[in-house]
Design a protein around this nucleic acid. Structure first.
Lengths: 274, 274
DNA sequence: TCAATACTGAAACATACGTTTCACATTGGG
DNA sequence: CCCAATGTGAAACGTATGTTTCAGTATTGA
């Protein structure tokens, strides 16, 4: 009990806290442990609670006074910086207990696997194309990946002109595809239970001489045959269904790199937006 | 001068210090920065000097008061622990390396940090609520996070009935909010450049006695005050803008756990869907 | 719906903290 | 060796801080 970190104490006690006390707890966790080293008034203000509530919160963690609590934080911080090894040593990782941690570890692993398997040249090629602001850019996704396309659209719009997202329904898409000009860029998403409509879309894009970038899963959509660049993502996890976090990460990486490459245009648009 | 760390200031000023002041400086460097966060009396005692000397030492470093000095230490510490990537932030990024790999590593780190900072009880509480299929579930996001809400909606729809997403425009939202009944669940997204409309939405949800789960960034939206459960995600990366991958990962974790908890209902719906 | 209970934060309070003062100690120059 | 100049810390001081109280508010259960 005495050998617990403040953070651990919070995790253990948080259920028994009242609503305002919980705000204090969250505030502290959000920028741990710095907020706890500030005076009570500032702690309270930043956490959105009253000083009295913060004090009650501290008391519930088992500290006799606020100075006591601060001393614990300092000691802890000292122990951490003096021996970074100690931290991982006294943590025998309760695998069974924490769903979130275990799940998050898998997603993080998927991201790493994805990044290492995608050839740098392919990734760069896609980004350079996206950064070429003279060419229009079309996005489309399937049932679940449509949200990824939407996210990417929102960000690309901030960075460059000529971004549009195709409608989810094929009927409407056909009309929109008429706007695609030779040399345009297309970012398409397709994952398992590969969508026949996406296959058609890719073919049509290709017929119109668009530069097709296909973002797909590790088993690779049949539409890949007709794409110029294929970016496969690791989606399998310890479940019966797949996780798209690595795909989302790839989208963010694409946005980041594109923004860099198109900085002259992007910086103007971003500042104009604010 | 203003952008110097305290440690750097000490190294620069140490030669001009008097003997007792230098003891104070050595003491602070010996266990930096913890000693500076202690009260002056303790600092003085551990450094082998008098409180007055410590104060003079602080003044020589250019601080107007001891609290001022402590605030500087806290800010500095925060910058360091908030992003272990600070090094790459200050130094010219080594472009030579693989962009994608480096970027992906940051996102993976953000996911881990997010998972470890979220109390298990908070996460579980949100999932249990979502798995209660008798209560309707409402989702809403902001400009960029709307895509996350959409993704979550698409998956939750597969798992349970009574899922609806609020319109992006506040005007339309007001009508939709009339459908919210006491005991309903609300999943709301709000991140920096916190949306005033989202604050209103949260308040309205609360007024209607909904159970509000707020997904936000590490700096925590002001809307958190009115939420039952707050799930903060680490979004800061080595750029001027933020990355939402950890937030997406959290969404997938929520979906996964909810599906587990609501399996009787979920399994039926999923198989019916195929 | 209403009463009982628990929670919350503004304000009053007491304490401990940072700060200043000043007498004494130390150092360096004549 | 003595004197001036500077450095030093014990004690006094005022203020900012932590703490407690209590009236108002929200929540819970009957």
């Amino acid at each position: 009990m005495a050998e617990m970190t403040v953070e651990e104490r919070i995790h253990e006690a948080i259920e028994q806290l009242t609503s305002a006390e919980r705000r204090a707890a969250r505030g502290l966790l959000a920028n741990y442990p710095m907020l706890g080293l500030a005076p009570v008034a500032e702690f309270a203000k930043q956490a959105g609670a009253s000083p009295a509530t913060v004090l009650r919160f501290i008391a519930r963690l088992g500290f006799r006074s606020y100075p006591d609590f601060q001393r614990a934080l300092r000691d802890e911080l000292q122990a951490r910086t003096q021996s970074p090894l100690q931290r991982s040593r006294n943590r025998p990782r309760q695998e069974s207990g924490n769903f979130l941690t275990a799940f998050a570890a898998q997603l993080a692993a998927n991201i790493s696997a994805t990044a290492s398997r995608i050839p740098q040249a392919e990734f760069d090629s896609a980004c350079r194309r996206l950064a070429d602001t003279r060419r229009a850019c079309h996005l489309a996704g399937g049932r679940f990946t449509d949200a990824l396309a939407a996210y990417m659209e929102a960000h690309l719009r901030l960075v460059r002109p000529g971004v549009r997202r195709l409608d989810g329904r094929m009927a409407a898409r056909v009309d929109q595809l008429l706007d695609v000009k030779a040399g345009d860029t297309a970012i398409l998403f397709d994952m398992r239970r590969y969508d026949p409509e996406m296959l058609d879309t890719v073919k049509l894009m290709r017929d119109r001489r668009a530069f097709v970038v296909l973002i797909t899963d590790e088993w690779i959509s049949p539409a890949a045959r007709f794409a110029k660049v294929v970016l496969p993502c690791r989606v399998s996890i310890d479940r019966t269904w797949d996780a798209n976090t690595a795909m989302f990460a790839l989208v963010e990486a694409l946005i980041a790199r594109t923004t860099e490459l198109a900085w002259p245009t992007a910086s103007q648009r971003i500042s104009a937006n604010e």
